[in-house]
Design a protein around this nucleic acid. Structure first.
Lengths: 331, 331
DNA sequence: GTGAAAGCGCTAACAT
DNA sequence: ATGTTAGCGCTTTCAC
């Protein structure tokens, strides 16, 4: 038989559709007798609400859209996303919300996202790795609430977010190097238009002061290849370096390869510190001493913010979570 | 003003709602004059269709659900998923379908997925790493079309899929070892209830015949730690081994650590071959010789199958894609 | 080729 | 505490 509707349930329970609807929506004005009858009818008929019909009247969609602004290759390598996706699915499911994924890589994508969101197809927006000045940011204004996992540069006060304390993490690693007695500490940063790129360098400079010179700083783009390139460059510019703080584990794996090629021993000649504590940190040789980001908590907090907003909170504060030094063998 | 409806467009264009709807749905019985007027009205009003309303009448939802059956830790480490997600988003978006993510890890999750799918909330189901005998498989029968990326053991003829030719890949690596003159070739397999676990071992045995003895075979669970454990075990059982084919790069990274701990040089003493050609393959030392799986093509084909089914194809054939040997430094 | 009208299944306001 | 009813915005016959 056809899929049962609320009408069938009402008939089976001997009540009206309104009463069934009230029960479904948690309204308390339902008598115990009716409640029992309806619940039995629901399980007997195998009734499942039709979201489309519900949406049509409530103007809510029951879904949240996660917008991935990252260029494709990155998405491919970053465990960050998996964690966020997992946590999002879980936390949304608890509220009976579903997670829709969209990409905003090129102009066409972006237009689709805007149509989707402005078309009222999502109750909330979860931004991921959105770049500074992304046109999407303006286009999304006025729509449903949006939050970001990680700060969106330039919109820190407008788009709520949860993030790791990148600056603190960088300080922890740099201080650790100093405590180890390292004298010439270099750094390989991430792209300088990302929060991690900027703030990890800031933390590094916080500790080293004027000793953090241009000569000892090279930039990467988060890829392993860029880490290798940057390390080679540093070795040329400052052959006397005895430690290097690399802003991501993946880039650190590249740096390790460059150091090996140059005949430097790690950590004896050069101490290497990574950032992320991702799975590559333990697959390199030697395993990486690194900074752990509380990925799961970041994801959870991000979702908490979004859910609060969806529930009508007018304003929520960003959340910054502490990082932690994880000592392995590279430093 | 309120979001414009088809009614507003019709009014602005001076036609009836029916005509606008016909244009929107690609019906050809629309006069050129009406078409122009309607198109102008649409862009002037900024009209976007309301999917809920459309769904209500068409009984289609415009979305496909991806069901992740993997235990959580795995999802965390596997680049496979990212590729699939990316390709799925892209190919579905072209058809104006959206991708909804769900998890089916525990009983509660599974029940939610079943409710969702049987409740008619998805036009298609994309299964990922579903295990043999998963109760979900039966519960989903009779619903919208479902396909899997990678075979579902025991349902190969029921659930269409696209996969890499695991058996071929294993043969390629094993033959390469033989060609290298290696005499005692061991293997670390994946879990024996997964297609990759079973078929990679089959390919290994295809080449080695009776030389593939129990003594030379150990089992892992895809994690790096299990690879390390299995390698240690093999080294005890067969200290004379001179090559090891590991069914995944991540496990191979673990094997590398165990070999290093045992003082064996790679590839001089022991040749190591991985499988996947994932990002860890180049972050290990030495970089892994491995078997490349055509992840993007697998994802594309999987989606092609699903879309064909959604379009009404009664039956589609599974797709098996060739693998390729990638030689680096570990063998 | 186009308009009119009948619902799709549900919620919420209103009555009682 | 419950029934009745008016739509939500759209597609799709059915007439013309």
């Amino acid at each position: 038989m056809k899929r049962p509707t609320i009408h069938d349930v009402a008939a089976a329970a001997g009540v009206s559709r309104g009463t069934v609807s009230r029960l479904l929506n948690g309204d308390k004005y339902v008598s115990p007798a009716a409640r029992v009858a309806i619940e039995r009818a629901i399980s007997e008929t195998g009734y499942v609400v039709n979201r489309a019909a519900r949406s049509l009247v409530t103007q809510r969609t029951g879904s949240v859209v996660m917008v991935l602004s990252e260029p494709h290759e990155k998405l491919f390598e970053d465990p960050n996303y998996s964690t966020l996706i997992r946590v999002a699915i879980r936390m949304l499911a608890e509220r009976d919300l579903s997670l829709v994924m969209m990409m905003a890589g090129d102009e066409g994508d972006r237009e689709r996202v805007v149509r989707y969101v402005r078309g009222g197809h999502a109750d909330g927006v979860l931004l991921v790795s959105t770049h500074a000045g992304d046109p999407l940011l303006d286009a999304l204004g006025g729509g449903p609430p949006a939050v970001s996992c990680g700060a969106v540069i330039g919109r820190e006060t407008v788009i709520p977010y949860a993030a790791a304390d990148d600056r603190l993490g960088a300080r922890q690693m740099t201080e650790y190097f100093v405590g180890l007695g390292r004298r010439r500490i270099a750094m390989i940063t991430g792209p300088m238009d990302t929060p991690g790129g900027i703030q990890r360098l800031e933390g590094f400079a916080d500790v080293l002061g004027r000793k953090a010179t241009q000569r000892l700083i090279a930039h990467g783009d988060w890829t392993q290849a860029s880490g290798e390139r940057a390390m080679t460059e540093l070795l040329e510019r400052a052959p006397d370096l005895d430690a290097v703080f690399v802003a991501s584990d993946l880039m650190a794996a590249g740096a390790l390869a460059a150091l090996r090629a140059a005949g430097r021993r790690v950590p004896d000649d050069v101490a290497v510190g990574g950032f992320d504590d991702s799975s590559v940190a333990v697959s390199t040789h030697p395993p990486l001493t690194t900074i752990r980001q509380p990925l799961a908590e970041m994801a959870q907090e991000t979702l908490r913010l979004l859910l609060a907003l969806i529930d009508g909170a007018g304003h929520v504060e960003p959340v910054i979570l502490p990082t932690e030094l994880v000592i392995r063998e590279s430093a």
